[in-house]
Design a protein around this nucleic acid. Sequence first.
DNA 1: GTTAGCACTCGATACGTACGAGTGCTAATT
DNA 2: AATTAGCACTCGTACGTATCGAGTGCTAAC
Lengths: 365, 365
Amino acid sequence: MAEQDDGLDERKQQILKAVIDTYLATGEPVGSRTISKYTDLKLSSATIRNEMADLEDMGYVIAPHTSAGRIPTDKGYRFYVDRMMQIMKENSDQIEKKQKDLDKREKELDDMRKFISSKVDKVDDLLENVARLLAKDTNYASMISTPSVKGNKLKFIQLTKLGSGKILLVIVMDGNLIRSKVVEVSEDITQEQILKLNLLLNTTLNGLTLEQMNLALLSGLESKAGQEHGQIIREVMQALIESIQNADHLQIYTSGATNIFKYPELSDSTTASELISTLEEKKGLTSLIKSEKDSSAEDGITVYIGDETPVESMKDCSVVTATYELHDGMKGTIGIIGPRRMDYQKVVETLKTIRTQLDDIFKKS
Amino acid sequence: MAEQDDGLDERKQQILKAVIDTYLATGEPVGSRTISKYTDLKLSSATIRNEMADLEDMGYVIAPHTSAGRIPTDKGYRFYVDRMMQIMKENSDQIEKKQKDLDKREKELDDMRKFISSKVDKVDDLLENVARLLAKDTNYASMISTPSVKGNKLKFIQLTKLGSGKILLVIVMDGNLIRSKVVEVSEDITQEQILKLNLLLNTTLNGLTLEQMNLALLSGLESKAGQEHGQIIREVMQALIESIQNADHLQIYTSGATNIFKYPELSDSTTASELISTLEEKKGLTSLIKSEKDSSAEDGITVYIGDETPVESMKDCSVVTATYELHDGMKGTIGIIGPRRMDYQKVVETLKTIRTQLDDIFKKS
DNA sequence: GTTAGCACTCGATACGTACGAGTGCTAATT
DNA sequence: AATTAGCACTCGTACGTATCGAGTGCTAAC
């Protein structure tokens, strides 16, 4: 019965786990008698009561009122999750999935493959669908961000004269991401000017990432081109710069916001309203998106419990996020938003699976 | 005191209007005494009571329980709205807006102009913003659909060789709508083949609407091109056909879903959940989008009250829709979803204003 | 160290009462 | 004949009280 690092002996840990497990399942405060029967450790309710009193003193559980069972505190959840993650990591090699789950996942994978092959060019639709899938599968709310394309290499730029004063600007990046725009210029541009400009742009910029095309380089290019071709060129370049800067437009898709009504503790009118609002507006979600190097969680999965979340309106929720990678450094974020008493195990597993699938998909294309 | 067409004499109409007006304002059943004081018609509560009893018999109002005031029925609302719309139409010429409103609207208009001029190419963003504006302004939920582009004329098609086996396809339509896609072909295509194909496509298709580019024409073109250029061409054409058919992808933006929590009668957990779900999923909203010629409402404004709505989950709501026009025949739909007791007058006016602004904006571009 | 037993707490539920807004009806008034 | 005053009645809401039971903390026994 050695004391653990957290000051919880083995038995306390088991009891805490039992409390959390049953609370996750039922959503109601769990009493000593329940634990006494539920667990395989042969202990009477009285003993459990004593241990639970200790756990309460240590801040892992709390009793909503005197004569109720205990529910986990954030600290309790945190301990539970950390332990779970550690165990998952240790077992990650010898994970042998249950066949049932495998079949289900395989079906989902198929669905996605089918979908993606039908509309390869529509990354947006894909992500939206993934969000939907996630929400449906987990019964929580989901979000997914478009991967950053800042690190994406430019493949091809093309200017085409459209009509008088109008130029079509098309940018193609690695992974076949396309951005296009019609640029209005004040004076007419000749066919030769366009051809020259095309050549200049492609030779100078080809293979560079959007990041590398910093303002200095571009405006240097602008003045260089300007010397040769005058005012109109400057306008085109200006539009190009804008386009490139806008190309990285971060977008977030959400789904299953109404799933939160499945959890009474979140169904309260104002809580729900705020929550759904943030999911609808999307702006508030950016703080959930992983920064470049999130060294703390090397596997890219982060769990925020209750107050830990950076999003104000999610104080009563837990949030699990994972990152997926397009290729080197181009990360997107997937997130699940649910009640504190979410099925962390399942969510983490699901996120891992989906992440892998996304990685595969993007690697292929 | 002549009997009106609806069997409601002038006084009953006034009382009905008074009931609805105050109910719209307060959201609570209104009693006879309130009316007696509120209106300018000098009548005692007893008289009002008698009249209200009549109105109840005729089905215009209903008492939620014996000792409560009356609330309007759908029939009552319908009468009210019809009358309002008629009056608005009659007065449409001599509408002199209150300066306050004008200022406010003008500010909104400015906001939109500013926004639109900054990102002319992003129709999507514009519409999303309009939805947001509407929701914020009215305190109801809003939706807006992208205008159909089936009637849009093709301005320009361009194929460009990207790399081995990859061709960039760009379609530019009237109003500078751009669709682009990367097409993968099994064999390489030569530069000359591409040039020829470009010429063929532009000469044949230029100026046609997407509608006119029916399958027959395109597949005719396909076989014609195919004779000259072989298998690869067929693949390109196939992609083109797909692109054109997908170009008209109807999209719906919604905003302010959480506004419904401002109305207790909709805040019930399941009602709200269903409602927000439909707004989130968007699919169910297509039935609100106006068909080609909705002759019944010549001004393009339609009011659905309660059960009248075609959307199942909105049985407890009222929905007001308006159409805006890009140009001939290219219509989009704007909609407001709120409680039965919505401020119909304000909503209709707001929709009319926004519609006009949208029309202006699209005519200009 | 564990457990049985017991008094105690407190939320949930049910029920009774008081209150008041609003009605319908009748009789008086204009 | 239409309007109004008056009054008994209805019913939802608020509130206080009683009961119940799940679960606790504590003490004493094992």
